[in-house]
Design a protein around this nucleic acid. Structure first.
Lengths: 199, 199
DNA sequence: GTCTATAGGCAGATAGAC
DNA sequence: GTCTATCTGCCTATAGAC
């Protein structure tokens, strides 16, 4: 495919402005929150003006929505990689934890975790997108737990949906608290305690 | 003690302005976050002007610091009640979970949980106060778990400090996610899964 | 697509009257 | 202690030139 136009959705080696805006905004939002993020912050980071930002994302909620959409689809891609690996349920659960740990290692909170804290201040389409992210995670994780239960490699008690919610909550909370300590190791230990419960 | 002056720290049946300011600010901050909270919000709620607010809490961080201090001391008082009850370790753990559930039932996130999400935007004295809250919780919960381990009413594996952090993270995360669903029952189920692991 | 310029609003904060 | 009035700054957003 010869080089022609550039779209927002495809990650590229030479990303276009929309992608670069999302990259800058994502870093700031996941570190400081959506309400503490301004077009001015991202503009300085990118060396362009806020007017240029508004050309690509007219309102702040447009940018916010795009952030969540991209984040969720990247997350889904990571989950698909885990599925395609045909690893054991246990290994996929560990891989799942590693995704969170990677984000934290970049000094960032989970995007939808930090947005959940600001939930009541978000536009309704952003709110919907945040919930969808959690549901996507719940579905995937439930399936993994179901499989671990079936092949007896896991031994959680209770319904898999409840366990999935517990693990997701635990990981989000561990990231949240770890933000106050800037300590990935702290997160890893909590995550290990959480997942070792199914042994 | 005859009625004389009024201080900020003593909760009262006829609370003075500083207390009423903290009450209004607390509700807003725990529901929407510190960055989404403004003096104007609280002023409208209280029917006074922002200038009056600044008289009692000159800078926003003064108000923030006072919020955390009061929250942490009230929390400590609740923990002391649990200790004085001489209930079993298990019952005190359940009581601990109930404190969180009560907060959530008022449509609020844990104050220090929501502040952790905004941690990097807080003044350093607010940051310190947030960390102290988590450490206070960790110390108390570790002691309860230690006792439950000793009298064999609990059966968590691993070090109590790690389990304490896991439970605190799990509860904070469950509150966080529950904010997006406005669902206390969801929180209670996750909390039950978390604490039943020690059975 | 990006710029300059600017509008309009709201934020945190202060001065001074009462 | 609370008010009115005001300052300064930053925010989101838009108009129009290039």
């Amino acid at each position: 495919m010869p080089t022609t136009s550039q779209t927002t959705t495809q990650p590229d080696i030479y990303p276009g402005t929309p992608t670069r805006i999302l990259d800058a905004a994502e870093q700031i939002v996941q570190a400081r929150g959506f309400n503490a993020f301004s077009y001015g912050d991202a503009a300085v980071e990118l060396g362009i003006t806020t007017a240029a930002l508004h050309y690509h994302y007219p309102r702040k909620t447009d940018l916010g929505k795009a952030l969540i959409t991209r984040y969720a689809s990247r997350f889904a891609a990571r989950l698909k990689v885990l599925d395609d690996s045909h690893d054991s349920a246990r290994a996929r659960l560990d891989g799942y934890v590693s995704i969170y740990a990677e984000v934290l290692a970049q000094g960032k909170m989970c995007l939808c975790g930090i947005l959940a804290a600001e939930y009541l201040t978000l536009s309704s389409d952003m709110q919907t997108a945040v919930r969808e992210f959690f549901e996507q995670n719940e579905v995937w994780l439930s399936r993994v737990l179901e499989q671990g239960k079936a092949d007896r490699s896991m031994n959680f008690t209770g319904e898999v949906g409840d366990i999935a919610r517990m693990i997701i909550s635990g990981l989000e909370g561990a990231m949240l608290v770890s933000m106050a300590y800037g300590d990935v190791e702290r997160f890893r230990k909590v995550a290990a305690s959480l997942t070792s419960l199914g042994n």
